[in-house]
Structures are given as C-alpha cells and as structure tokens.
Amino acid sequence: MDEFSLYVLDITMNSVRAGADKINIELIEDDEWLLFTVRDDGCGMTKEQLANLENPFFTTRTTRKVGLGIPFLKMLAEMTGGELSITSSHISESEEHGTVIFAKFGKNHIDFIPLGDMIGTLKTLIQGAPDIDFVYRHKTENGEVTLSCAEIREVLGDVSLGEPEILAWIGDYLLEQYEGLNNN
C-alpha cells in the first residue's frame, strides 16, 4: 500500500467487522512523529487471537489463509523508527469490550509514505457502514480537522449517511477543513 490513508482504511475495517457502534480514528502530528489511534467498542479479541495477531499466517476469515492488515501496519511503523501496540478485551471477558490499535511513525523517515487521500478513506468507511458513529480527528501543528458522524446523523434523522449526496457533502466538508489547515 503506497498511501497511509489506505492503512487507515484497512485497519478501521477490522473495527467495522468487529461490530462496533462507535469508532474513533485519530491522527496526531508533530514535526517528527505521526501518532495513529483507532479505538472501537466492537467484540474485541480473545487471548488466542491477540497472541496470533502479528502472525501473518493467522486469520479469522475463511476465504484465505493469511491476514496481512496488522503485519503491514507494524512493518511500516517499525521501518520508520516507530512502534505498534494493541490492547483488546473480548466481549466474553469484559463489559468494556473493544480494541485499541496505536501506531507511531517517524514521518520524516525515508521509508514513510504520503498521507494520501484521507477524505476518500473516510467516505469509503461511511459508505460501507453508515450506521456506525465514526469520530475522526486529525491534528497537526497548523490546526485540526474533525468529523462526527453522530452529529451529522442528528441533523439527518432517517436519511442514511451512506447516500451519495450526503457522502459528497461530507467530502466537501472535510476538504474545506483541510484547505484551511494548509493555508495556516
């Protein structure tokens, strides 16, 4: 994957499939590091799944025998001098179930990749799971870009966030914020 935003899409899809109602996606940058966190209230992982998480030959799916999402993210983090950590509690073990993926990247490292189309990633996530409350926050030294699907849903009522007209509006809404960020 040649854009960081594709990693964000791929990792967040895990939270979607874990049956989360609420997913927080956070990118925080300073002049040296990019900190990436995805936090969900999905079903979480069992101890066995957690132990095998970084093993690419372990996957819960049945259509193929490898799972590369987390190994890819870990590789990129470590290649750029950063790290990856995961905490999770399974629905059978705790009422506060869910998963937190945290990864740190050296953004000036030669092996880091461009951020890419974060707006495309968010539109794709919302299109696929319009009922989930995604909360997005991207903070840089110039300011921040935010999105709250719950807030938008409050306005929309029974109109789905997945409707093309709404997705287009969300895209414009984010684009405007990113343009403001770049002009600061």
């Binding site: 899409l9 791929d10 193929r64 189309d117 794709t124 299109q127 696929g128 093309p164 287009a168």
Partner: peptide, 23 residues
Amino acid sequence: GMATCGIAAGARPVLNAFVEGVA
C-alpha cells in the same frame, strides 16, 4: 471487495467511482 487485498490493489477509487457514477 474491500479487504486488505482489495484495498492494496486499488479498490477505494473503484468503489467511489461506482457510488458517484450511479448517483
């Protein structure tokens, strides 16, 4: 298809093209 394999191969712009194109 939007799993790791699809995403890595370029499924995101394909999906968005279908969503926008249909509309």
